[in-house]
């Protein structure tokens, strides 16, 4: 016979119900597939790029933006938010890192560090 042992934490149950139906309901709500994952990009101030801030769950794009506002900008971190569903992001394969990135290692001449810059140029 299989025994299912789960860790239970404070807050897992409502005040009155000792698990049962509520526990099942909670499981359904916390089902990994219930809401899709979204990636969040925040622009910290005008003129700067949007930077990846993290990810979150939301039912649709509107909710994802609002969730991002509540989760990632509550300490004045941003002036603009982008969200994109994580499944739409295509990434490099870690297994191909060697062929993709290592060839650049010995090409230090691609860094513009071999020039003498005039003093008048401040931002390089």
């Amino acid at each position: 016979m299989k025994t299912f042992i789960g860790k239970q934490l404070y807050g897992d149950f409502g005040e009155q119900e000792p698990g049962g139906e509520i526990a099942k309901e909670k499981k359904a709500m916390h089902d990994e597939d219930a809401w899709p994952l979204w990636e969040v990009f925040i622009r910290s101030k005008q003129g700067l790029d949007h930077k990846h801030a993290g990810s979150l769950k939301a039912a649709d794009a509107q909710m994802a933006i609002e969730n991002a506002r509540d989760v990632y900008t509550r300490r004045q971190e941003g002036v603009s938010i982008w969200v994109v569903e994580s499944k739409h992001i295509h990434a490099t394969n870690p297994g191909e890192s060697e062929s993709l990135f290592e060839p650049a290692e010995d090409k230090i001449y691609r860094h513009p560090t071999f020039y003498d810059l005039p003093d008048e140029i401040k931002h390089m």
Binding site: Y10, G11, G14, M29, H30, W35, L56, K57, A58, E66, N67, D70, V71, R74
Partner: peptide, 15 residues
């Protein structure tokens, strides 16, 4: 707080 239906909404309602 700590009883929200999902983490993001827990933060939304407490905000």
């Amino acid at each position: 707080c700590a009883h929200g239906p999902i983490l993001e909404q827990d933060i939304a309602i407490t905000n």
